[in-house]
């Protein structure tokens, strides 16, 4: 096992070419658990935390770019939180303050756990994942990036450089159910975005399937029922049916953290609540 600590992205890419089996390490909050628990013994590690460019973000009127090494703590407040309230809400639910100081969006994408808190937000905001390799840059829509439980379409020679998001107008929020009031892994989570600018409603579900699930049928149904360029109506029947259609998209399982039935139920409740929050 060898550890490399590059200070530039170019250097990191060169190292990755030279060590194709190297594990890329961002905040360490996933990889180090595997090492500490004796579940993974990487041959080689490229630690990305000292690459300053990865820890930067830009907020422009038409595009927000977040470096893969930006920690969650930086998304909780400031310009990123103002531009992307759902991401701020999600960041605030990640682990503990210590984890949020270390954990990054790039790490969340690299691990690609269905319970990753940042991922439903990226799914709902139709984020683009920007990868870089010796072959050059590659931009992949989130929906094509995450391919399964802890699986993604990053090529072995690629490094996740950043995430691009188009700003929305209107409402966006994220909520997550866990069995403790802080520092808890998601049992079910929902990101809801109502973009009046594009007259669209987007909803993404976490921890209830092998990947983050976009409830596209429910989105389309709702868009057919309402004028999404305006504030959404809040009558009970409409909201209830929307929430049921969202829950129908979930593909949850039973495990030691919860049951499939509860997870599906929780998705329905969260979908209803976030919808109603958008109308307030």
């Amino acid at each position: 096992m060898s550890v490399h600590v590059p200070t530039s992205l170019t250097e990191a890419i060169d190292l990755l070419v030279a060590n194709p089996t190297a594990r890329l390490l961002s905040g360490g909050t996933d990889t180090m658990v595997e090492v500490n628990f004796n579940r993974s013994k990487p041959e080689s590690v490229i630690a990305l935390r000292r690459i300053a460019a990865l820890r930067e973000y830009t907020v422009d009127s038409d595009r927000i770019v977040i470096g893969a090494g930006v920690p969650y703590a930086m998304m909780e407040k400031g310009p990123l939180a103002a531009a992307l309230p759902a991401l701020a809400a999600a960041a605030r639910t990640v682990g503990s303050p210590q984890i949020r100081a270390a954990g990054t969006l790039g790490g969340n994408l690299g691990t690609c756990s269905p319970a990753g808190d940042g991922l439903p937000v990226l799914a709902a905001l139709d984020a683009t994942i920007n990868l870089r390799s010796p072959r050059g840059p590659r931009a992949v829509p989130f929906a094509e990036f995450m391919t399964g439980v802890k699986r993604n379409s990053r090529a072995v020679d690629e490094i996740i450089e950043s995430v691009s998001i188009s700003p929305t107008t209107g409402f966006q929020d994220y909520a997550k159910v866990g069995v403790r009031n802080a520092m808890v892994i998601s049992v079910a989570s929902v990101c809801f975005v109502h973009d009046t600018g594009s007259s669209s409603v987007r909803i993404a579900l976490g921890a209830v399937g092998p990947t983050i699930i976009r409830a596209r049928e429910a989105e389309q149904w709702l868009q057919s029922q309402v004028d999404a360029s305006q504030q959404l109506p809040s009558h009970d029947k409409l909201v209830a049916e929307f929430a049921q259609r969202v829950a129908a998209a979930a593909r949850p399982i039973d495990d030691h953290r919860s049951t499939a039935a509860y997870r599906r139920h929780a998705i329905e409740v969260l979908a209803r609540r976030l919808y109603l929050r958008s109308t307030q």
């Binding site: 809400a89 639910t93 994220y174 159910v177 866990g178 009031n181 998601s186 609540r273």
Partner: peptide, 16 residues
């Protein structure tokens, strides 16, 4: 307060 940390669900901000 919607999503207050003091409500059930805490930092998950589930509760209204």
């Amino acid at each position: 307060v919607t999503g207050s940390l003091e409500l059930p669900g805490g930092s998950g901000r589930t509760s209204d």
